[in-house]
Each structure stands twice: as C-alpha cells, then as structure tokens.
C-alpha cells in the first residue's frame, strides 16, 4: 500500500469555518471532500498538500432540493445519493445514467459531486452531465458568494476557477419542460474510467422540433459542448439522419489522445456512435415527457 507524504488535518465545522481554515493555512491547504480523487493522488505522491481541510461534517452541503424552475444540489452530495434520488430520476435521467457507471458502488458511497467537478479530471463524468444540463455553480469565499455558469468552472484538465481559498458549495440545474437527457459510456471494465462517453440534453418545442440541445463528450478532449453538432440540430425535427450528422460533427470537433484505452480513431468513432445513441434516447424521453 502506498502512503502519502505527511500533512496536517483540520475539520471544518461550517462553510465559513472551512474558508477561514483555507485562508489561515495558506496556499498548500486543500479541501478534502470524499477524498476519492485526492487521497489516491496523495498516496502516489502526485499531490502533496500540507493541510487538508475536511468538509465531510458539513451537512449543510449535503442536500438535493427541488424548486419549480431549479434543482439545487449541495457540493457534498455523494454519488450514491444522486444515483438513488427520485428527483434526479424524474427530472434528469442523465444523472442516474452517469452515476451508474461512475466508479463502483463503494467508491460512490464516498465521492461527491463537488469533488468530482473540482477535480476536473478529463475523464470525469459529472462535468459532462453538468455541462449539458447547463448547470450553474455556486462558489463561496471570504468575500461572499458568486454564481457562475458551469462552462466557467472548468479551466482545463485538473484546473477550475474555484480559488484555493474558496469552496464550491452548490450546483444548480435548471428544470425545463419537454426535456430529456441521457448518458452513455464505454469502459474497458465495470469501475473503469471512460474510454469515451457522451451526454445529451434536449428540449423539444411544442411542435416537436428541437428547441434546445446540448451535447457533451467525456475523455475525448472536447472543451465545453459540441457546438457545431448542437447547431445542426436546433430547430429541426428529430430524425436518425439528423443524429448521424450530429454524431459526425461531434466526432470531428473532439480531440482525443491515444492511451491504453484505445487509439484516436476508435475514440473518435465512439464520440460519433455514443452521440447518436444519447441523442436518440434524450429525444425519446423529451417526447415522452411532452
């Protein structure tokens, strides 16, 4: 078993306390949420924070609340809670789709949505989910709170706009009528990170045309969502030909790299194939919710 370098540890008692602790202990202090990204990296000594500020006691960050136009999710909400949430299942089927294939059930008992988004791993699934649901992120710092678009959260692989002395506290998902969403991932084995994955969220107009659509890809080097594919769909009546064209555009716009999970052409092919699949399902669900 590998072992991390030494560090100091403090438990935050409130969000304000966490921020104060981060301020006090300076640039080498890190937030410890579920710990399922941070601790593995520390054990491999790829990360060496000097202080860990444990926010697991912050029950105030562990919630899912539903309002007519928005669902708010606390940053400390665990993967398992999201997977089992009836609110999510009803409004955002993509969440359960993704959660079912994130890591494994035991990891999901600990890992949090806040940790996932702040880790900003290129193969991380919830970023894609939040991207296509056009989420907003609530960030708290000593100076107060700011609300940003999810697209402004991720700055690149392992980099976010949450400052060292700030806390991501909440994710907000807009609720939209006649919407449907879906996620699909190809993995080498259950529990593995994605070879590639795609997520889509669709809003249909009253006449059945696609009013709004977002397509995201995981692990294939697409920053943000697949704009050209989305543009090709907007205002159109969903059809297999349309999905095929959109899949092709999404595949063209991503930028995968070869690794043990597969070569570039395969990953590009998956971007295409999975985009078509999730569009198909998202449109069908949106139509059902009519």
């Amino acid at each position: 078993m590998q072992i991390s370098a030494p560090f100091d540890y403090a438990r935050a008692e409130s969000v304000d306390d966490a921020i104060a602790l981060l301020e006090r202990h300076g640039p080498e202090a890190r937030v410890l949420a579920g710990g399922h990204s941070l601790l593995p990296m520390m054990k491999l000594r790829l990360a060496r924070p000097e202080w860990l500020i444990d926010i697991n006691d912050l029950a105030e960050l562990d919630f899912i609340t539903e309002a007519p136009d928005m669902v708010r999710i606390g940053a400390m909400t665990r993967h398992t809670t999201l997977l089992e949430s009836p609110v999510m299942a009803r409004l955002f089927p993509i969440v359960a789709d993704a959660e079912r294939v994130i890591a494994d059930p035991v990891v999901r008992n600990r890992g949090t949505i806040g940790g996932s988004l702040c880790q900003a791993d290129p193969a991380e699934d919830l970023s894609t989910v939040c991207d296509v649901l056009r989420a907003k992120a609530v960030i708290r710092g000593a100076a107060g709170k700011r609300v940003i678009e999810i697209s402004e959260l991720r700055r690149g692989p392992y980099e976010t706009s949450v400052a060292q002395n700030e806390l991501l506290t909440e994710i907000r998902l807009p609720v939209r009528a006649r919407s449907g969403s879906a996620y699909e991932k190809v993995e080498r084995r259950v529990g593995d990170w994605a070879v590639a994955a795609a997520g889509a969220s669709v809003v249909l107009a009253a006449d059945g045309r696609i009013e709004d659509v977002a397509i995201g890809l995981t692990a294939v080097g697409l920053e943000g969502t697949a704009h050209r594919a989305e543009d090709s769909l907007r205002g159109q009546v969903p059809s297999e030909e349309l999905f095929t064209a959109a899949g092709r555009l999404a595949a063209e716009d991503c930028n995968p790299v070869e690794d043990q999970r597969g070569p570039v052409d395969y990953k590009r092919h998956l971007a295409d194939e999975l985009t078509r699949r999730v569009l198909r399902r998202a449109c069908a669900l949106a139509a059902q919710r009519g």
Partner: peptide, 18 residues
C-alpha cells in the same frame, strides 16, 4: 479483446496489444 481492439478487428485492422 478489449473494445478498442475488437473494433479495430471489425475494421480489418490489428492493433498492437496495449
């Protein structure tokens, strides 16, 4: 026979085992 290698075989190609 990983997904990537099966897919390559379907394209008539062999990929080195990685």
């Amino acid at each position: 026979c990983t997904p990537a290698r099966v897919w390559a075989a379907m394209q008539g190609r062999a990929t080195p085992p990685i």
